[in-house]
Computed example of a mutant assay.
Amino acid sequence: MSERGKITDGMSEEELNARHAEKMAKKKVAREKIMATKTGEKGLVIVHTGKGKGKSSAAFGMIFRHIAHGKPCAVVQFIKGAMSTGERDLILKHFSDLCQFHTMGEGFTWETQDKARDTEMAQAAWEKAKELIRDERNSMVLLDEINIALRYDYLDVNEVMAFLEAEKPAMTHVVLTGRNAKDELIEFADLVTEMEMIKHPFRSGVKAQIGVEF
């Protein structure tokens, strides 16, 4: 039996509830003390990477939070082509006044098999991204799958970081998604989340499905 089990063994439900309330009260005080020191605000550089599913989905969650709060935002998709997705269809149909949406890629690189064309499209997407980031009306700009473009050197990661350092407005959030984020970008970012894949239905022969993957 654990030490905790020994302490609580034989206690009545009322005593256990009182003990729990006391413990949570102490945690609340400690938490509030920590939160009182967190008073700063800044526009964050946020990276979602890793082999697991959910990088773009989590980023779109933040975009929809911005929309819900009436805060202008924008999306640039670097790799994904013209395939319809739920996020894009919903935004274009109902929220285009708050969220600009630009699909600049023509598909994943193994689909196009044309590095020169992929590079050209990535560069065009980056130019659009810079325009949207410079516009201080946009509270958040999502650069979806830009990490793929950086991985294959369609874009220079140092150029991207230099732009964000020099020209990103102080209160604008920029989210960069895609697996294999460059080490330099991870070091540069304010918030980095790595999605870890534990299980995936694709390995069991299940294809991408509406409402889950797109």
Score class of each variant (00 low, 15 high):
E22K: 13
M24V: 14
E136N: 11
L92T: 14
K115Y: 13
W110Q: 08
H20S: 06
N180V: 01
C99T: 05
D156N: 14
A82P: 05
L16W: 06
G105I: 09
I7C: 02
H173E: 12
N158V: 00
T177H: 03
I63S: 01
D183H: 11
S96M: 10
L191Y: 10
V141I: 08
T119K: 13
N147A: 14
K42V: 09
G178F: 06
E14K: 15
K93L: 09
H173W: 04
Y152G: 00
K115W: 10
L150G: 01
I79D: 00
Y152W: 07
L143S: 03
T85I: 10
A25H: 04
H173G: 03
N158K: 02
A21S: 13
H48W: 12
T85C: 14
K55A: 07
R137M: 14
H20N: 10
I146Y: 00
I34M: 13
P169C: 06
I63A: 04
H69Y: 15
I186F: 03
K207C: 03
I146R: 00
D118E: 05
T119D: 09
F188L: 10
E111T: 11
A129D: 01
E136V: 12
G211D: 01
K182A: 01
Q113H: 13
R88E: 14
K42Y: 14
G86F: 13
A124L: 15
A68L: 07
W126G: 03
Q77D: 09
A36Y: 13
V47T: 07
T177G: 05
R19L: 15
I91C: 03
F188M: 08
E187C: 00
L143G: 02
E213C: 03
E213A: 03
H20D: 12
N17K: 13
K168L: 09
M171C: 03
C73W: 04
E32W: 01
A208R: 07
I79G: 00
I67R: 07
M104Y: 07
T49I: 09
I63D: 02
G40D: 14
N138F: 12
G70A: 10
M171S: 08
A58M: 12
E111Y: 05
H48A: 06
A59I: 11
E136Q: 13
L176E: 04
T8L: 12
E165D: 06
